[in-house]
């Protein structure tokens, strides 16, 4: 479904992504973890075709990352960092606008709006102005938007950032329910172990724009904190870097 080879992104001569290579199959739920500035958000932005990569090769569902960006956008749902939404619009109005922008037919929009509003528990806020919603509700609106067109790939940049424990649990359960039984590929970034253990089937750790660990053994992490695991992998990565420099 997603195939990335030697992908780099350079900002002002500084590599933010450094020859990233990975593949993610259909139905995989990948958690991208790493410290701030590791390159997680940039990787998602490249996959969402917001930013073009500086070099490398990438294919998403058979579409080239560099030349078929419109086709990739049509099959991808993306929730950017900080959940940017139009504050002056109402929830239902916003979802309708986003559906029409994705070339969905009127009847399909109505059906899918009903489904995602129910899934994200937004029925009481259908007619509320987005600007008046709390952070958790905004995240749920962003999630509803990302899932509206039943995308084959879902990219979520920290879907529970700034949320209280109740909203974190709510969003985690919405995501877990939405992903159950689907063949959708999900890639998300987070700093919370709770959502990783509930949803992810695979974990990728990033550091300085590189993948330093890639594991499918999510269950084995249950008794360890993410910080412990990250510290261990980071140590291994740094010693391997030192060796290669010598």
């Amino acid at each position: 479904m997603i195939e990335i080879r030697q992908l780099s992104k350079i900002f002002s001569k500084r590599p933010v992504l450094n020859e990233i290579t990975f593949t993610a199959g259909q139905g995989e739920r990948v958690a991208l973890l790493g410290a701030n500035g590791a390159g997680k958000t940039t990787l998602l932005r490249v996959l969402a075709t917001y930013l073009p990569a500086s070099s490398g090769f990438g294919k998403i569902a058979g579409f080239d990352l560099f030349s078929d960006s419109l086709s990739i956008r049509a099959i991808t749902g993306y929730l950017p960092e900080g959940v940017p939404l139009y504050n002056d619009m109402r929830v239902a109005e916003y979802l309708k606008f986003r559906g029409r922008l994705r070339n969905m037919e009127g009847q399909l929009i109505r059906k899918r709006m009903h489904d995602v509003i129910a899934a994200c528990d937004l029925a009481s806020w259908r007619l509320s102005r987005i600007g008046s919603l709390s952070a958790g509700l905004r995240h749920r609106v962003g999630l509803a938007d990302a899932m509206l067109h039943e995308p084959r790939i879902l990219l979520l940049d920290d879907p529970i950032a700034d949320c209280d424990p109740y909203q974190t649990e709510k969003i985690t359960s919405i995501l877990a329910d939405a992903e159950e039984g689907t063949q959708r590929t999900l890639i998300f970034t987070t700093h919370s172990s709770e959502i990783v253990l509930s949803i992810a089937t695979r974990i990728i750790f990033m550091e300085r724009g590189q993948i330093i660990a890639d594991t499918h053994e999510v269950a084995s992490l249950k008794n360890k904190t993410l910080a412990t695991m990250f510290g261990k992998w980071k140590k291994e990565f740094e010693s391997s870097m030192e060796k290669s420099e010598k």
């Binding site: 969402a48 917001y50 956008r73 993306y78 994705r102």
Partner: peptide, 14 residues
């Protein structure tokens, strides 16, 4: 400023 440009530019519009 609001960041919505990212949402717009990752929609299937050129």
């Amino acid at each position: 400023t609001s960041g919505t440009i990212e949402t717009l530019m990752t929609s299937p519009v050129n």
